[in-house]
Design a protein around this nucleic acid. Structure first.
Lengths: 181, 181
DNA sequence: CTAATATATTTTCAACTCAAAAGTTTTCAA
DNA sequence: TTGAAAACTTTTGAGTTGAAAATATATTAG
């Protein structure tokens, strides 16, 4: 009996809900993410043109700098990219003489990477990995707001199932313990 | 005395030199974004395996459904992808018989796309564009928190320069001089 | 009417990305 | 010792991505 009225009421509620086009909230998340991803792509292409290094190349190069003699597996976990992806990026960096690769003497399966002099020099010119406007605007926010944003982004990453991937490498910084081989 | 003006300079000074231990907040944003982007990539690959449509393909297909007879330029703006990208995705969808393309009779430069029966059928199986876990967890959050998250993501997108990028840069010459036609 | 210009799309190019398969080397068990 | 299994890395295959060049068509100035 009251079914039709309930349906009508529900529709009315949905339609008048917010100023926007009655979008499902997940949809809005998706749209926002797509714009963020596109912005990072555009920025990366611009860096490639102006500085000669894309964002992923820079991230990997910095990781090589920070981790020292490092295997591609460690790199892969550190920068959140698959092993194959890291290999192709290292290929390019090696071809340009920015890094060197060599097999470990003790275990010839593993391949170490390290910066060359040129890689170190190029890295000093430090291409900014985020849009300048972002760095500027973000840096002007109150510290509390900055933390909120980071926390929200981490939450979203966790909700998307990205949590476990970097759990292991947390040891990287602390695992300087005793790893004798 | 110049202290207030040095705020910006101080911000920039926060670049750590050799091991970036200090965890500059921008760096944390970058890391979170990379994990989010990776999660969306992984999800897209999984969809491709299980449903036969990647995320971008689904997004474009849905846009064709929602916009009706649509040009690739309109699609490009609607889904936040470059024109060339949209073309390659439409190529794939067309090859599989999910859409049709045909030139406009009135202006033969423009190409319209529309769903085929099969495209419509496949869309009804609606592959979820976000990780199920995300949809579930996100949906359980209070509505106010959901809105906060969306607002934060939109803010981040805007800070990265992704806000009005679609239309504006196309009119680079003359800067919005209005001309009667 | 013709040439220049503008508009819409596609093509080309280089890079990124992951999964899965393939290739090496090491370790371990029988 | 000899296989088999495990551990690492690279290769392969398919798809996404944007910039810039190339095409095709339309519009406009002279």
């Amino acid at each position: 009996m009251a079914l039709t009225e309930n349906a009508a009421a529900e529709r009315r509620k949905v339609r008048s809900d917010s100023g926007n086009n009655g979008e499902d909230p997940s949809q809005e998340v998706l749209t926002a993410l797509r714009r963020i991803i596109r912005a990072t792509d555009l920025h990366s292409k611009r860096l490639a043109r102006e500085v000669g290094l894309t964002t992923p190349q820079t991230v990997v190069l910095q990781a090589v700098r920070d981790l020292g003699e490092v295997t591609s597996g460690q790199l892969s976990r550190h920068v959140s990219l698959s092993q194959g992806t890291v290999t192709t990026i290292l290929d390019r960096l090696e071809n340009r003489g920015l890094i060197e690769r060599y097999r470990s003497a003790s275990d010839r399966r593993v391949v170490h990477s390290r910066l060359t002099r040129q890689g170190r020099a190029l890295l000093r010119k430090a291409p900014p990995l985020l849009h300048e406007r972002f760095i500027e605007v973000f840096g002007d926010l109150p510290a509390a707001r900055q933390r909120q944003i980071i926390k929200t982004l981490d939450e979203v990453a966790a909700m998307m199932g990205a949590a476990g991937l970097d759990a292991a490498p947390l040891l990287d910084s602390g695992a300087s313990a005793k790893r004798e081989r």
